[in-house]
């Protein structure tokens, strides 16, 4: 089932002296439960594409359909609500809230969605166990390693059972062991919860694990291979 559809999407940054065509006519679809990697060199438009899929940025032209709804027509308040309910983000530099514990970080969005405490606690423990941090719920981000912080970020992204997880260079700051560990966890959750994972990366280890690899160059899709 097609859950995400991009049609001739362009993104042009024209605020600087030189106009930058970051995404140049991308048309791709994603089906439910995909584990896909968008790869390409720096400046190829990976992050911009991911931001547009996540509603953080608007395409200059073209349309993005999510579950048949045109994301580009959403008002800004609708987009925020859409993100909260449908998308989980994993960032390169983890971006956890430093003053909250791992548990509080994971349950943050559930709180925003006003989940009952009982359900919140159950889901938080379930996710922390799933990412192998069941015993570190009360630790603050500063007390965790980079790999552990990124696992908390994945747990946070999955908390409200979103349709997609958009992960922007999730392994860029991790060592090999942490990278493989994180990828295994994400793959397992992808299969168990049937959540669509889309990575932007230039990490060969991620590419190797992905079941679909979309290559971007100068903002254009140059290859789209499903394994």
């Amino acid at each position: 089932m097609k859950v995400l559809e991009l049609k001739d999407v362009h993104k042009i940054y024209d605020k600087t002296e030189v106009e930058v065509h970051a995404v140049n006519g991308v048309s791709i679809d994603f089906i439910e439960g995909e584990f896909a990697a968008i790869v390409g060199p720096s400046g190829s438009g990976k992050t911009t594409l991911l931001n547009m899929i996540g509603g953080l940025d608007k395409p200059s032209t073209g349309v993005i359909f999510v579950d048949g709804k045109n994301l580009t027509k959403f008002k800004s308040s609708e987009i925020i609500d859409f993100r909260m309910r449908n998308i989980g983000f994993v960032f390169q530099s983890y971006n956890l809230i430093p003053v909250l514990t791992a548990k509080e970080n994971v349950e943050f969005i559930m709180n925003l969605q006003k989940w009952p405490k009982k359900d919140r606690d159950r889901r938080t423990m379930e996710l922390l166990e799933a990412v192998g941090l069941g015993d570190r719920g009360n630790s603050r981000p500063a007390q965790l390693s980079g790999g552990q912080q990124q696992r908390v970020a994945v747990a946070r992204a999955l908390a409200t059972k979103p349709k997609f997880i958009l992960a922007d260079e999730p392994t860029a700051n991790l060592d090999s062991a942490s990278t493989y560990n994180l990828l295994d966890i994400m793959e397992k959750l992808n299969k168990e919860e049937n959540i669509t994972f889309i990575f932007s990366t230039h990490d060969a280890r991620v590419v190797k694990k992905a079941r679909r690899v979309i290559t971007l160059e100068d903002g254009k899709v140059v290859s789209d291979i499903t394994h």
Partner: peptide, 16 residues
């Protein structure tokens, strides 16, 4: 700034 961007990205609305 970055953290506020992250909060907005994960769905914290302007009111919050």
């Amino acid at each position: 700034t970055k953290e506020l961007g992250m909060l907005t990205a994960i769905g914290m609305n302007k009111k919050k």
